[in-house]
Amino acid sequence: MDIKAYIALSLTLFSIGIIGVLTRRNAILVFMCVELMLNAVNLLLVAFSKMHAASGIAKASVHYASDAQIFVFFIMVVAAAEVAVGLAIIVMLYRNTHSVDINFLNRLKN
């Protein structure tokens, strides 16, 4: 499989995530679109690691393709921590304003 197919798929998923962030108004859905963008990047990292393994440049090293997958693992770790804090913030906002519409959550603006 060509790497271009994976890049195209990841770009499509990432752009769908961007469109969701820009158009949806529910804070939870915006947050889910951010998760989708993170996953698109993860898929791209894994595909690049397998491309690197196929290229033969890095065959001399022992861990020639594991580094990128460790990186994906750490992205998942950070995403889990981020979701815990972010959903706590959304719950607190809902408790104070009884809404998760991001157009009403503009108090920091003034």
Binding site: D2, Y6, A47, M51, H63, A65
Partner: peptide, 13 residues
């Protein structure tokens, strides 16, 4: 440039 991805083989993962 055509760059292939290893499918179903490789023990990195």
């Amino acid at each position: 440039k055509e760059q292939l991805v290893l499918m179903r083989v490789g023990d990195a993962g």
